[in-house]
Amino acid sequence: MHHEITLTINGDLYTVAVQSHHTLLKVLREQLGITSPKVGCENGECGACTVIMNGVAVNSCQVLAVEADGATIETVEGLSKDGNLHPLQTAFIEHNAVQCGFCTPGMLMSAKALLDHNPHPTADEIRHALVGNLCRCTGYTRIVEAIQDVARQGDPT
């Protein structure tokens, strides 16, 4: 059976008919064409599908689309504004924090969720927030440095 759901994605309101057993990840990618969340392990281990849902990072492969009725979703597609990259995106580029790029959208959304709640995290707090985001190109150090850089930019000094 189909369920009609309404959700806000990157500030835009969408109404879409979804099947009960389809995940938010599947609906984002295959029905709405929002493909920054990646299909990785589909088991809640790798974080490649991470989106921000109602202000917190979740694995979109672990959410039924129908559960997202009324939710507010943020993905990488919503990070840049007026053609300008988000500071996290710029920092990832400057720090060479991207190798193959498959984990990057999930890393960015986990990092954004962290900074939204805790603008000045320690390196330990950053690593803790990224426990659920696996990078298989051994890029963690540069990713942590990129996020620290953004956290410093936000300093009032």
Binding site: G44, G47, N59, Q62, S110, G132
Partner: peptide, 9 residues
């Protein structure tokens, strides 16, 4: 338990 994304669900 789990990781950040899992604990949020």
């Amino acid at each position: 338990m789990g990781n950040e994304q899992v604990r949020n669900r």
